[in-house]
Design a protein around this nucleic acid. Structure first.
Lengths: 148, 148
DNA sequence: GCTTTACCTCAAGCTAGCTTGAGGTTTTAT
DNA sequence: ATAAAACCTCAAGCTAGCTTGAGGTAAAGC
């Protein structure tokens, strides 16, 4: 096999992911491949970097769809250059900062609640706003009176 | 209806969750109900607090299964008293602290990586250990040489 | 040449935490 | 008394991010 082209197995091994994961990424439009005469996938080395970026982004909590969109903003949908990476990762870092800040606020509120223990849906800071940053879940709706 | 007993709809409304969620929690052994003559669920007010604790715990990232286990450690599987809540929430707060610490380490490593941009699976701090704290995913396995 | 290993596609399965829907019963309101 | 609203159970569906399996082809090793 031409050593300039990587088989899916080789990419999987070098990226530390399963072959099925690469198929999946391709399906989702995150990576691309060429096919050889026998219809097998052949990758350029670039893909290694691309997968590395995907893994890094996932680690900081970016979804595959967001990663795909981020890639799509790059000229010619190219694999991120150093500058691209710096740009994208800065954005992702802000994400991370927000998530950290959210968790810190949560921790602080929890600290208060540990002492109080009321857990009142109406009054307890545990259930207060700003939860849009949380993963999903719409949080409790305040209704009726509350004497839990 | 006896005002000492709450219907599932009433509990749902007061907790800010859907009826189906309460069914689901009951199925998973997180809450309990009695049945009236017509086989409809009837809850004691306690359940409001129980659901509140569940919601609070979920918010700090505890899974339903962990919550169930935590409840199971309480005498008689009772709804957490103030002391119980203080004990449990302290444990959960540590969880939260670990997650925050993990994300902070990640952020710091990312900062380094933004400048470097190598993303080398072998050398880049982005892919280094301690990821057991991350949600799941086993992270990349280091294999072969790496020149992405 | 033969066997093993790697690869292909497509569909279905998995986890968590629920939601939705079908088909039927009970309670409540008028 | 009747109609609407709430309830019941059980099964299936949903999202994300993959994995697994079946059934078949291609490439690589000896």
């Amino acid at each position: 096999m031409d050593h300039h082209e990587l088989s899916v197995g080789a990419v999987a091994k070098r990226c530390g992911v399963k072959v099925s994961t690469l198929h999946y990424y391709e399906n989702k439009g995150l990576i691309h491949s060429l096919r050889n005469a026998g219809n097998q996938r052949r990758y350029r080395k670039e893909v290694l970097r691309r997968v590395a970026v995907i893994k890094a982004a996932q680690k900081v909590g970016v979804t595959l769809e967001e990663i795909r969109q981020a890639f799509a903003t790059l000229p010619d949908n190219r694999t991120p250059t150093l500058e691209d990476w710096q740009h994208l990762s800065s954005l992702w870092q802000e994400n991370l900062n927000e998530r950290i800040a959210y968790l810190e606020r949560l921790r602080d509120r929890l600290t208060g609640c540990i002492g109080c223990g009321c857990l009142s849906m109406k009054n307890c800071p545990m259930y207060n706003e700003d939860d849009r940053l949380a993963q999903k879940g719409d949080g409790p709706v305040l209704l009726d009176h509350d004497d839990a």
